[in-house]
């Protein structure tokens, strides 16, 4: 081997290995030092400005302008820090305190930066902007979010749809419902959760969506109709027990657990007797209904497969005997 390999090459390899090791050690140290310095700087700014941010949440109407003026008068680094603190705190509070914090965010200059970032070239920055628009709700946020919900990048669309959950405007509800569609690129749980957050404002649209030609929209609407207690949706949910798509049928069953309807029992028994995971879900729905209704249906499940019987709460045969 050594004949094929001149000692110079070995020396060269050793040198390269040493250099690579050194470079990585330096990187390690540099990473850790800069991170520590950044954290220290943050802690210093926090010590100075935290009190101001907290006080804004309890300020009376007549005290607030003075506080906001103080924020506006600070240097860039301090205002950026305050913007960041407010952004984090807005995760935790609602109501009046949140409104106050949003005004501080505006005074710190965060809002214009976020608005500008909504048109940034990088998809990550646009997604960050969508998140911030939802939390800070500056002027024009709804329009920007509606635009971001049409972004070419699915990740940006997802964050925008989630952020639209903060808005009860009809346009926001309509856009979120559309995000339930199968090819929207937005996870269905995200869109459904946003609709839940919109709450009562979404009721009418959700009821209409139960008849949508798109299976994804039907499924999402069926899943949350019960959670939102959408008035007038019970009959539609019963109809969806016969839907072509299994996932839609399953979603309708989950909602019927919270909105019991007598007419659902007959189709549910049929599904339960067919067995499988869908059958189990049907059995669970039956078992969740008022006992005076469900008793005959449960009797009918006596001959169902054991998994379905378990889901319906029926006893083991040897235990029952």
């Amino acid at each position: 081997m050594s004949e094929l390999l001149p000692p110079e090459l070995l020396r060269l390899l050793l040198l390269a290995a040493a250099l690579a090791t050194l470079a990585m050690l330096v990187t390690l140290l540099a990473q850790r030092t800069t991170r520590r310095r950044r954290e220290r700087r943050r802690a210093e700014l926090d010590a100075i400005h935290r009190r101001l941010v907290l006080e804004s949440t309890i300020a009376e109407d007549d005290e607030l302008p003075a506080l906001l003026d103080r924020v506006r008068g600070l240097d860039d680094a301090s205002r950026a820090h305050i913007g960041r603190s407010v952004f984090m705190m807005l995760q935790d509070v609602t109501g009046e305190a949140a409104d106050r914090l949003r005004q501080v965010a505006a005074a710190s200059g965060l809002a214009p930066r976020v608005t500008a970032a909504a048109r940034h070239r990088s998809a990550v920055r646009r997604a960050d902007a969508a998140e911030a628009l939802g939390r800070l709700a500056p002027e024009g946020a709804l329009e920007l979010l509606l635009a971001l919900a049409e972004d070419r990048d699915p990740e940006v669309r997802t964050v925008a749809v989630r952020a639209l959950g903060e808005f009860e405007h009809e346009a926001a509800v309509a856009r979120v419902v559309r995000a339930l569609a199968e090819d929207s690129g937005v996870p269905s749980t995200v869109a459904a959760t946003a609709l839940l957050q919109q709450g009562g404002a979404a009721s009418d649209r959700v009821r209409l969506a139960l008849r949508d030609p798109d299976a994804g929209i039907r499924r999402g609407a069926a899943r949350i109709a019960g959670l939102l207690q959408v008035p007038g949706s019970a009959d539609e949910l019963v109809a969806l027990l016969h839907d072509d798509h299994e996932s839609v049928r399953l979603a309708a069953m989950r909602s019927l657990e919270r909105m019991p309807v007598r007419e659902a029992l007959e189709p549910l028994v049929g599904i339960a007797l067919a067995g499988g995971t869908t059958g189990e879900a049907a059995a669970r729905t039956i078992a969740s209904m008022p006992s005076e209704w469900s008793a005959p249906a449960l009797d009918a499940l006596d001959g169902a497969e054991p998994g379905v019987r378990r889901a319906a709460g029926l006893k083991r045969r040897e235990a029952a005997a």
């Binding site: 960050d128 969508a130 998140e131 964050v159 749980t189 995200v190 959760t193 959670l227």
Partner: peptide
Amino acid sequence: HRGEDAMAGSPV
């Protein structure tokens, strides 16, 4: 913008 908290509380 991962939105973990939104999902943590989501009944769906």
